[in-house]
Design a protein around this nucleic acid. Sequence first.
RNA 1: GGGGCCGUGGCGGAACGGGUAGACGCGGGGGACUUAAAAUCCCCUUCCCCGCCAGGGGAGUCCCGGUUCGAGUCCGGGCGGCCCCACCA
Length: 830
Amino acid sequence: MSMDERYDPRSIEARWQARWEEAGAFRAGRRAPAPRRYVLEMFPYPSGAMHMGHARVYTIGDAIARHARMRGFDVFHPIGFDALGLPAENAALKDGRHPAERTRENIATFRTALKSMGYSFDWEREIATCDPEYYRWNQWFFLKMLERGLVYRRTGLANWCTSCLTVIANEQVVDDDRCERCGSAVVVKEIPEWAFRITAYAEDLLAGLAELGEWPERVTTMQRNWIGRSEGAEVDFAAGGEPIRVFTTRLDTIFGCTFVVLAPEHPAVARLATPERRAEVRAFVERMARTDALARTGEGAPKEGVFTGARARNPYTGEEVPVWIANFVLAGYGTGAVMSVPAHDQRDLEFARQYGLPVRVVIQPPAGERLPAAEALPRAFTEDGVAEDCGAWSGLPSSEARRRMAAFARERGFGAPAVRWHLRDWGFSRQRYWGTPIPIVHCDEHGPVPVPESDLPVLLPPQAIITGTGEPPLAKVPEFVRAACPRCGRPARRETETMDTFVDSSWYHARYLSPRDDRRPFDPEEARRWLPIDVYVGGPEHAVMHLLYFRFWHRVMHELGLTHEKEPCRRLVTQGIVNGPDGRKMSKRWGNVVEPGPMVARFGADTVRLFMLFAAPPEKDIDWSDEQVEGLHRFLQRVWRIFHARQDCFGAPPAALAGAGGPFLELRRRTHRTIQRVTQGLEGDLKFNTGIAALMELVNDLHRLEPAAAADRAAVREALLAAAALLAPFAPHAAEELWHEVLGPPVRDRLLCEEPWPSFDPVLVASDVVTIAVQVNGKLRGEVQAPASAGEAEVRELAQGQGRVQAHLAGKALRKVVFVPRRLINFVVG
RNA sequence: GGGGCCGUGGCGGAACGGGUAGACGCGGGGGACUUAAAAUCCCCUUCCCCGCCAGGGGAGUCCCGGUUCGAGUCCGGGCGGCCCCACCA
């Protein structure tokens, strides 16, 4: 036996990484008949070096993947790079290096770093989204979605510099209407953009959440809120030619409506403004359009508005109320117009008080006290109550009033019940270089024409002219812009905007299935085999954007016949942040950044991995701690030493196990209980920390025992083999090494990572003697050892035999005895 | 303002469906080994009180109340922290 006494991760880690790779141990699909498991971690954006957050996600995912493999599953565990995006472009602005070049380099660095951690990825399926062979399928999906009406062009308002001829950000507008760079006039212009009609799936995305029982509730709740279904009604207020349609969830309050407010962008504003007010209205609209969105509509923003001069007729009361426009009404929600009921809506009340508009109470609290008079109302009463002064609906509870009033509107044809969503369509045009070109050609005659599928991919031109302004860089590459209209062949202009990078991450999980396929985005047969993802690990910050787009896209793929299920992923695990040693978020500013690279060099990947798993359960934030890391490193050394010290047990015959007695029978029990506990920590709740703690206890026991007889040595050998196998998902390199040490010279094609997961003997796990707590009136007064099978009478006798228990029982009447088998007995006295 | 999560030793954290609170690790203390130190191995470590020891008593999971034989766990009300959304009509 040539076992080094010293634990030296440097040499063993590199060696096992090479062995795994040679053996192709992590290739998916090599155990074809076995049940499958798709374990995925969110792919990284390769910016410079790997950081601790990455080390944590991939360590968690890898422990799951390695365990599943040992459980006999055919495991799919791919990795790739989310390589397009803003950071590479911003970095290019500083040093002029081409994003492609920088990205290629970063990926290489990242790949090396990931490999040094020993993650069990199937590297043959690696993808990078900046590869045309990847993004051409973004373009393909775009075309398919265009065909289905799921992509459309809409206009949004943007600042347009009349001299630079480009879109500029609100922050770049100075002195109200001047361009920061050239001082020329800035106008608000309608700029077209591309959007995905995700709202068509609002209902289905919401309903689907019910099936995601293995997603953290906070994520499904966030999605539910984000989709934001609200039920209400739409009604028309007559105003001159065409009516103003408002959406409300509180139709029951409409008798209290004293004015109507439109968003500044509402299309009817120009028509409604009376001649004497037109100038003022226009000025307000233009100012609002230029104001930063957050400053304008944020909750803290002061309410501002102007009267249009127009009046609108309340269809229920026949009353004419003034029409205003104001900053707090959002064009994008509901109908962009609201009926204002200051007595029963706080925003409306504030606005009414500010502009001297009337307040009218029409709902009273259901029971007890009445609201003060309208003028004295301290704040709006926004709860449901009972309608008052509401014509035929007076006296009805709010919910009933809403229902009947909506039905009335439908009968009379001026409105109907309606459902509105908070979810907006996904605008995905970006005025950026480092993204997927949108496959469209603009023809003077035919407008926007899709690029035929056979002409894909539309390649990103190598000339990167990074503008850093709102202007699309691709517009500055004439060779790119110049194109022929696919329909008529005449000269036309290519679309110069690129896609949001959330497009890339919406379907990458499927591309892994057949990453080199050049005929389709992925092979539906493979999808049938591997999808949906069984476990997806990533940060909770992606709860709404990525994870919602990803669910949307999967539905589209389902409708295209590419996948057989609507939902992409069964179980989601959201992991917490790795903070600096000071408990603050790692940041250059605090000087508390710790990188995995140097830590791996110092302690080895296994130690860093153990730290990530032992510090806390996956979903909790953790603080990096040098002391804890050293402790985990000491643990591995301690494991190493015990294996070395017990070399004489390696050859012990398993047949001798039956003879183990005394402390060595206890050791056997401990071994089997450890198998049980580690297994539980890996399945179900994912509590790696307690699993590792159990392993530490086993190792501590081994250190305390000195085997002599053959049976003792067999028990020790059993414990050592179990320890190595249980360690494999967490500290895989050390585990392989130790496993092979016990078994003798390694057999070339037998790797621990492919061995079956150890099983425990239920007989050994169930101890035959248990400690039972003895309480008197719920207070602990002693404990007794009893056979596990002991009944109440037996335990009671043992307990009452104890002096201390007797002392507490003395002179009191025994009223009741509560007995919990194997756990406790409680004497209730009085 | 709305929604969600969470408050346990000096610290990170354990505690299966209410059943011995503090597993395991860090830090700290003591001992063994050593000429010495480091490393290692063993033991102790929630707090307070009584006791020479053995041991015993009390308090204790953010606070107040409730349910229960029994509450870290369940219920109600506070306080504090973190995260997400945020003038969504």
